[in-house]
């Protein structure tokens, strides 16, 4: 799994170029690897679509006769739901246990022998995966939304580039969270506990079951600044449906940047601790 083929750069290249080349090569291999799971992608799209219908109608019911709730109108709710169902697979919120499995079986040793830092190489693979998911899993629900529902389309020119950046940050931040949850396998015999807690809380706190705007304002703010969860789904969607004025939009992406940097730093720290432990205890 996850075989990595990095091109050996000629010695004239700078370190930075070489790093980008390696990173790019790993990302491409990640894309290719996930592109082989086409049948699973089809099944996933069907499931996302069914839940899209369910959530759309439920949110709409919450909006009631006025058609407005927590700063969203009907069209914005439709966009929130259908793009959200696609983003779910792009950030791969659930189901990634590869790192934990490799730690448990000891295969992680092979990753540590590579000249690329494990956090970097797993991140690159994950970006490749996200790239494939953006094509196979994001596009279909968005098309369904466009064809069958009166979705809200962004009106400001800055929204689309900001949304793309926001999604990219969400992918990296979600990767960071998943990496940390998986990395508990370095210390725990059985990682089901952390995985279950992650599955439980990530869905509800990221704004999947209901937009966090349905909560009291203070609670939404607390979750947004105090936890990384809204940065994974709610913020990209709020940016896209232009729930807030431009400065707030930019500010929200800033919050994402903060969380992403913090999570990646934490991943590296945890990895270093774990490796030291492996060296001392011999895995």
């Amino acid at each position: 799994m996850g075989s990595v083929t990095a091109t050996v750069a000629p010695p004239t290249d700078s370190n930075v170029t070489r790093w980008f080349r390696t990173f790019g090569a790993i990302a491409v291999s990640g894309f290719r690897r996930y592109a082989t799971y086409r049948q699973a992608a089809v099944a996933g799209v069907v499931t996302n679509t069914v839940f899209g219908f369910l959530r759309y109608y439920i949110f709409l019911a919450a909006a009631g006769a006025s058609g407005r709730v927590a700063g969203y109108d009907r069209g914005q709710l439709a966009t929130y739901v259908w793009v959200g169902q696609g983003l779910l697979a792009v950030i791969a919120i659930w189901g990634w246990t590869e790192l934990a499995d490799r730690i448990r079986t000891g295969e992680i040793a092979a990753d540590l022998l590579r000249p690329v830092h494990p956090v970097t190489s797993y991140l690159a693979t994950d970006l490749g995966r996200a790239g494939f998911a953006a094509l196979s899993r994001l596009v279909p629900p968005v098309l369904i939304g466009l064809l069958l529902f009166d979705v809200y389309l962004p009106r400001r020119w800055a929204t689309l580039p900001l949304f793309v950046l926001s999604v990219l940050l969400a992918v990296v931040a979600c990767f960071g969270c998943r990496y940390l949850v998986n990395a508990t396998a370095y210390w725990l015999q059985d990682v089901r506990g952390p995985l279950i807690l992650w599955t439980l809380f990530s869905g509800v706190l990221a704004g999947l079951y209901f937009p966090l705007g349905f909560l009291p304002g203070w609670l939404e703010a607390l979750l947004r600044y105090g936890t990384p969860f809204p940065s994974l789904l709610q913020i990209p969607l709020d940016v896209l449906v232009e729930r807030h004025p431009v400065p707030t939009q930019v500010g929200l992406v800033g919050v994402q940047v903060g969380w992403t940097v913090a999570l990646l730093a934490l991943c590296r720290l945890v990895q270093r601790r774990a490796e030291r432990r492996l060296v001392v205890q011999g895995g």
Binding site: I58, A61, A62, A63, G64, V69, A70, F210, F214, L215, P216
Partner: peptide, 9 residues
């Protein structure tokens, strides 16, 4: 939570 924002569903 849904009933927090609406009185009827």
């Amino acid at each position: 939570v849904l009933f927090g924002v609406t009185r009827e569903l």
